[in-house]
C-alpha cells in the first residue's frame, strides 16, 4: 500500500471538496478511524483554502499541491502554493501566528484567545483568522511552514497517531 499521495489542485474553490473526498478515501485505506479522517479533512480544507486565498495564481499553470504521508505513528500533510511579493506581509503574519499558537502547550488557549478576539466585532470586514487555530486545536496537530527557493510556500501539519486513531486498535 502506498504511504504517500499527492494531489494537484487547480485554483478553483470547487476543487477543495474533490480533494477532500479523495484524500478521505486514501486515509480510509490506511484504516484510520472516522474521527481521525474527519479532523484531517478539516485540516486539508483549511490549508487548501489558505493556499487559494493567499497564493499567486497569475501565472498559467500555477496550482496548489497537497501531499499526505501516513507513517507508523505519524501523519504529515503538506500544502504548497506559489507566492509572490504581495504575500510577504501574509508570510510574516503566518510566521507570527504559527509561533504564537505553538507557544501554548495546550492549543485550547490559542483557540479561546482567538475566539475572544473574533467576538470583538471589527467594524470593517476582516478575515475571521480562525483557520490555523482550528487546525491546532480541533485537529490536534503541529503546524509549521517554510518558503522554498522557488517561492513555493510549504505549510505543513504533523499529527501523532495514538491509541484509537486507527480502526483496528
Amino acid at each position: 500500500m502506498n504511504n504517500s499521495i499527492e494531489f494537484d489542485v487547480k485554483p478553483d474553490w470547487d476543487e477543495i471538496e474533490k480533494v477532500r473526498n479523495e484524500s478521505a478515501d486514501f486515509l480510509q485505506s490506511h484504516e484510520l478511524s472516522d474521527d481521525t479522517i474527519h479532523s484531517l479533512s478539516m485540516i486539508i480544507s483549511e490549508l487548501i483554502e489558505n493556499g487559494l486565498k493567499y497564493g499567486d495564481f497569475k501565472t498559467e499553470g500555477n496550482k496548489v499541491v497537497v501531499i499526505i504521508n501516513v507513517a507508523t505513528n505519524m501523519i504529515t500533510v503538506e500544502v504548497l502554493n506559489p507566492v509572490d511579493e504581495s504575500a510577504y506581509e501574509h508570510l510574516s503574519k503566518l510566521d507570527k501566528t504559527i509561533q504564537w499558537i505553538r507557544g501554548y502547550q495546550d492549543p485550547f488557549e490559542a483557540y479561546i484567545e482567538r475566539i475572544k478576539e473574533v467576538s470583538k466585532k471589527p467594524l470593517h470586514d476582516m478575515e475571521s483568522g480562525i483557520g490555523l487555530v482550528r487546525i491546532a486545536y480541533e485537529g490536534n496537530a503541529l503546524l509549521d511552514f517554510f518558503v522554498a527557493e522557488n517561492n513555493m510556500l510549504n505549510v505543513s501539519v504533523v499529527s501523532n497517531l495514538e491509541k484509537g486513531d486507527r480502526v483496528s486498535s
Binding site: I112, I115, K116, S119, K120, P122, L123, H124
Partner: peptide, 25 residues
C-alpha cells in the same frame, strides 16, 4: 478606545464569552 482608535466594537463583558468552554475544560 477600541471603537474610536481601533475600529472595533468591543464589549467589556466579551471576556466572559468563553466562560463555559473554559469551565468545561
Amino acid at each position: 478606545n477600541s471603537l474610536f482608535f481601533e475600529d472595533k466594537l468591543e464589549k467589556l463583558q466579551a471576556e466572559f464569552f468563553n466562560l463555559p468552554l473554559i469551565l468545561a475544560h
